[in-house]
Amino acid sequence: MRFTLNGETRDASSPPMSRLLDVLREEFGLTGTKEGCGEGECGACTVLVDGAPVCSCLVPLVQVEAASVQTIEGLGDDHPLQHEFMNEVGAQCGICTPGMIMAALSLDEHPTLDDIKVALAGNLCRCTGYAAIYRAIMKAKSQ
């Protein structure tokens, strides 16, 4: 099962009905992608498939054959969203943060607060509170 993972061609050997989430974490050791709920509700497992945010807990491996998957690791460690989440203290425990950042990537530059809320409607945070998260995204997307 061949696909593109963070820009590199990779072959996965997990069973075809594996959750993309488990393949990323267990087969490829990319543990930045988190499992919160395992049922599509929390967005902690958000990755991009062909540029679109999806819940990797709901995507069977077989469906990413020949597709391009991007995880939080694919951003490197110098992305404006990462810096602003730190500067604005947009994370406490950090479990939701990779999913928040992957969902925020789909926003155009200079979003309104409403645009941000809509883009993040599928991402839950249980500790930081949304104000700091929205602020971080607003700053990163308005540079």
Partner: peptide
């Protein structure tokens, strides 16, 4: 429906 992640799939 859901959030963007669910709408995309």
């Amino acid at each position: 429906v859901g959030g963007p992640q669910i709408q995309n799939r």
